[in-house]
Structures are given as C-alpha cells and as structure tokens.
Design a protein around this nucleic acid. Structure first.
Lengths: 366, 366
DNA sequence: GTGAAAGCGCTAACAG
DNA sequence: CTGTTAGCGCTTTCAC
C-alpha cells in the first residue's frame, strides 16, 4: 500500500509537517522532543512502513559502523572447521556482543585481488587479523585504511596490538615432555611452512623460507628442545601437510602414516595441532601400533576433541576463547597506554597418549 | 608524513589536477581512462596512503553492501557452540565466498530493543534468519527494511523463502525406530518450548503455548508416533532444558538424570538433539545403566559428535551444511519463480545406542 | 576519454 | 523542544 522504497526521513517529515531533524531525533534522541510528538512520528513511520533511518546513511554521517571484521587466511568455511579457530571466534563474538558490535567474517580468498578487496571494502570499524602469513598483502590494506586492527597469532607488526601465545615455548614443552619420557626417536607432523599446497617431507629450502608464523615458531621450539638433548635435527623426519576443507585430521592421518611407514619408525610423534594428532592416532590404530605402548603422540591446542580422543591426547593447552576475547577488547576499547603485546599462557596437559619409552621392545609384558 | 585521514577521492584529484571522476574511474572502471593516467592516479594514491574509495560512501551511493547477515536467536558465542549451527554457518559461508559477499553474524540479545536494533542497523544486503521463535519482533524489522531474507529452521512466513527439514517427520522416525525395537516406556528430553529459562518437566500450559518452531514440531512427531502405537502421551515424561553457554550437553545430562531417577525408569529416551543425547549418555553411565542394554537413546541431527560418541549414537540425520548453503543461494541468487520452500531430507541412522527392548529384565545374560 | 552537477539519506552543530 | 544549514565521500548522469 505504501511505497516502502521511497519512505525516508524526509518523506515522513513532510507527511507530518515537521522537519527531518525531528524525525531523526525521534529515533536517536528521544529526550529531544516531547513524548507525544515522538509517538506521532513513530506512529506515522510504522504506518508508512518506514524501517527507521537508513543505517548506511547514518553510518556515513556518523563515521561509526558498529561492526568488527575478523580476517582469515582461508575461506571461512575451512577456518571454522578448525576447533581452535571456532573457539577464538566465540571469544571475540562474546566481546562484540557486550559492546553491541556486529561481527563480520572476512574470508581469505586464494589468489589475486579478490581477497584484498574484501578487506578494502569491508564495512567495519576495525579488524581482528587472524592470519599467519608474513607477507600477507592485506596487512598493507589494513594499514592504509587507517582503522584500528589487532593481530592474533600473526606475525608481529610494529605499533599494532598483538595477542597470541609463546608458540615456540609451547612446542619446546611438548618435545621436552617426550624427551623426559626417554624418547630419542621422533617424527613431526607440521602444517605447511610456505603458502602452497605442498604435502610431503619438509625440504631444507622450505624449512628455511618458512613464512607462516605459527608453524615456523612451533618447529623452532621442537628443534630447540631436541637439539638441547643432542638429537640431530636434520635426521628428524618432518611431514608437512595442508589441511583441506574437511579439517586437519585427514592431513594428520596422512602425515602420521608417512612417518609410521618409514623404516626407522619413530617412538614419539609431535603433531602441531590436536587435529593433526587425532589423525596420527588413527593412522597408528590402523597399523596396530599401540598408543602409548609403542608410540607416544603429543598434540597442540588442547581443543575439546583432545580430551575426548581415544586415548585422550597429551597436548599443550592454550586459552582460545580468551584469545579472541582479549583481541576484541583491545580493538574495541584500546588501552590508553598504546599497542599491547599480550602473550597468553600455555601449559603441558599430560593425558594417555604419551608414556615412557619402552626400550628396545625386547619384552612386551602383559 | 601524509595525512591519511584526509585523503579522499577529491584530495587526490586536486593533487593531480584531475577531476574526482577520473580518480574514481581509475578504481572502478579501468577501461574508462588511459592506462598511463590510471597508473599515475594509482601511484599518487599509493604515495598518499589513500586506501581507495571509502566503501561506506560508495555503498551509500551504489546501494549494494556486499554482505549477508545471519540472525541468531542467542548470542553468537552460544550459537556457535551448537555443532549443527556451526555447520550451517559453514555452508552459508561457502556460498558467500563464491559470491564475494561478507558474512555478518547478528546475535540475538535477550531482552529489549538492543537485539532489534542490531537487525535494523546491520549493514547488509539481506538476511538469513536462523531463529526459531514464532513471535520474534525482528521479523517485522526484516519485513520493514524491505531487503530480502530467507528463513532457516524458522516458523514460516508468507512469501518468504524457507529452508529446513521435516522436523515432525524426523522425530516420528526416531520414535518409530524405538517402537519397532519393542520399547513402550519412553522419556523425552526437549529444548524449551517457550522463550524463557525454565527447566523441568513440561507443563500442560507450556506444551500448549509452545512458540519455538523446531521443538514444537519434533515433540509433535514423537507424539504422533507414540500415540499411533497406543501409548498414552500424557504419561510420557518430558523434561525441558535450556542449553547454556557451554552447549546443550549439560542440559541433556540434567534432563536425562531427571528421567532416569524417576520411579518408573524409561527404557528408551528420545533426545531432541545429539548434544542433549550425549548428556543423557553421560547421565546413564554415571548410574551404571548400560546402553543399549538397559536403555536406548536416540538423538537428532547427526552431528559429527554422534558418530564419535560412546556408544555411537542412533540419530536422525539432516544435511546441515547444505541447509546453510541452500539458504545462501536462495538469498544471493533468488529464483525467478519466487519464494521457495525447500525441505531437506532426514534419515534414520542406526548406531549402537539403541537396541531391542529386553523385556522385564528377568535375566541379565552375559 | 574526461569533467561538472546532482544527489544517495542522514546527522552534527548550531540557531531559534 | 524544533528547525536550518552544511556536508559525510562517493558515483550516476550527462555534457564536452
């Protein structure tokens, strides 16, 4: 009946014989006009099907959008299959909600300008940059847009708040735990170190050129611990795997299989995430390898699935939700003291997937 | 060095001695000006730290935002703890990505205007309305805003596309499965039927006033099957539970406990979701009740956790990701034939949590 | 190919 | 309490 498309602040002001401002105030500043007038305005609006001030226009005028963007490395549909990422989103979402801000998920789009444009054109007041790649071109866009952003688990940028963990220290703990159990023969399942789809043993070049912050750091942590125990790093087999849309567990399975099918089967496997570790567990089970009897496995992240695994997974815990929430708070409510670097705590969580090295397997007691 | 805040289409046009239009075209219509000029413009922009046309302003002018909003019943942080919801988000996200649209998560905010305003002011081109409450006031806002929206698992609205499943039919299958196994003594764990925090046995009034689409339909399905088998519906204990921030499994645990602690312990429990069923499994385990020996449990949703449960859960499957993707496609690429009603298939998935009724438990063979 | 005019719909700032 | 003025930064339209 009434032409919705056409009703605007002005049209309903005319209709009522008042000024645009009065109508605007009826919505935004109830205290600026008499209750009766306000009711009259709102009533007319209701009648005309006027949905209230066009948010785009008011946003342009006001300058505040009321939303936060979260930028991912991958398509959001992939990213959310990572339980750790999903928890970070939840933590961020809870802060956004208390601050009455929306949450826009900005996917990473493999090649070209498309992914960059998404960041350039996202309608938000600031970003959480949850991306790992050192040379990400979107970082420059972020800087140019001149809006605040906070890095999560990303390579550090000068003068920008950062939230993450001590990935290297955590990895070191994981490796140290296995060393303490007497293990000397290791295998590692790693995420890709370089932005490509490579799957296979890590090559020296890739090792050197690693440009993903988290895997590089975790690998460095493993290395530090193992070398401190006089284990020859070069001889430690490392399998790089690229998680697909279905999550990292398939990647872990394939990486674990490669490690377990080697002539010199390791007695301990370090997996860079719990999802990868879960895949390793499956690969071991298929081969009749007993965990932790024949093989110890340690993950990273302590996602809910780690505790539920069979056997429950020894892993490094970190507070995922808190990470998202901290980043959100830093963005929405920036500390007067300037950019912060928040390092959240990690801890070794010993469960049933790791056990003392059993020696040369002379006896299989029990 | 350069005042980022100030650089605008106009400022860089002036700087170069060209018109605003030329600069705009350099970004949006490369074919409208000579490559050299374009390069000159882009170069100057780069130098001045101009991040490209302000997306807010161009959006206002153009009218297209390039984002989709997904509206939830609850805080997003709660909603994402539901694996089914998370899968729907993933499905939707994948469509958004191929269509180069962002995805804005719009939380439900318990009382008052706040949640309504989020919908009124969200900067999007359309909505996926993933909410269950019949009388949701945000539906009116959606209508008034005059932008397209698609309902998912929501009460139907005339002339609006709808995606969901046959909840009633699915529930009927679940109950029929247990009837076929010989069970006659049932208990039900339900989600809240009314928008409040009530927890306890369903009361007749609540049963009648049920205003959440999905639980009401599923309950109706259970009822249909049980009554067809001459079971007195009134005598079937139903426990309503309200999932908190930690997910529905705690709710299922409490509901299951209530059912199992009754004088007349049921031999079969119908849980309205897998998460609830998982909680029931825990409650049974704590009481030393063997599943499926002493008690059969059937869930709903077939989330990944159902297959991984101990014992693996018999449940009703539905294609969650497809649901999200279908809704996204309907929104972004509306069929010429007008609003659609898409009913996705459900199926009974029999696993190890259900078994034939064992009679009066005279014998406990084995 | 390039430019000038005319708003998109709204609100800050101030005047009455 | 209400109205006026002056844009927010951009793109559409049309003239050159």
């Amino acid at each position: 009946m009434t032409d919705k498309k056409r009703s605007t602040l002005e049209s309903i002001a005319r209709q009522l014989g008042v000024s645009k401002m009065t109508v605007s105030n009826a919505y935004n500043r109830p205290d600026q006009l008499s209750p009766e007038l306000r009711e009259r305005v709102l009533g007319a609006a209701r009648e005309l099907g006027y949905p209230g001030p066009n948010p785009l226009a008011s946003t342009l005028r006001r300058g505040r959008v009321g939303a936060v963007g979260m930028v991912f490395d991958e398509p959001v549909s992939f990213a959310l299959s990572d339980p750790a990422a999903a928890l970070i989103v939840r933590g961020l979402a809870s802060v956004c909600e208390t601050e009455r801000a929306g949450l826009l998920l900005v996917p990473g789009v493999p090649g070209g300008e498309a992914g960059i444009d998404l960041v350039r054109t996202a309608l938000v007041d600031g970003f959480i940059f949850y991306c790992d790649y050192e040379g990400d071109p979107r970082l420059k866009v972020l800087r140019d847009r001149g809006m605040p952003y906070v890095l999560v688990d990303a390579p550090a940028v000068a003068d920008v708040s950062w939230v993450g963990i001590d990935d290297r220290g955590g990895a070191q703990m994981a490796a140290q735990h296995l060393l303490d159990l007497g293990h000397r023969s290791f295998g590692i399942v790693s995420f890709n170190l370089v932005p490509d789809d490579y799957e296979g043993p890590v090559t020296p070049e890739r090792h050197k050129m690693g440009s993903f912050h988290v895997p590089v750091e975790r690998l460095a942590g493993y290395r530090q611990a193992l070398e401190a125990a006089s284990i020859d790093w070069i001889s430690v087999p490392i399998e790089e795997r690229h998680p697909g849309p279905g999550g990292a567990s398939a990647a872990g399975h394939s990486g674990g299989a490669a490690l377990l099918d080697r002539a010199a089967q390791p007695t301990a496997i370090l997996a860079m995430s719990d999802e990868l570790a879960l895949g390793v567990l499956r690969a071991a089970a298929q081969r009749g390898i007993d965990i932790p009897g024949d093989l110890s496995v340690v993950g990273f992240d302590d996602t809910p699935a780690a505790a539920a695994a069979e056997p429950p997974l020894t892993t490094i815990s970190q507070p995922h939700e808190l990470k998202g929430a901290t980043a959100g708070r830093l963005l929405l409510d920036p500390p007067a003291s300037g950019p912060q670097r928040v390092v959240l705590p990690t801890a070794l969580v010993v469960r049933a997937s790791s056990a003392p090295f059993r020696g040369e397997r002379e006896t299989t007691t029990e």
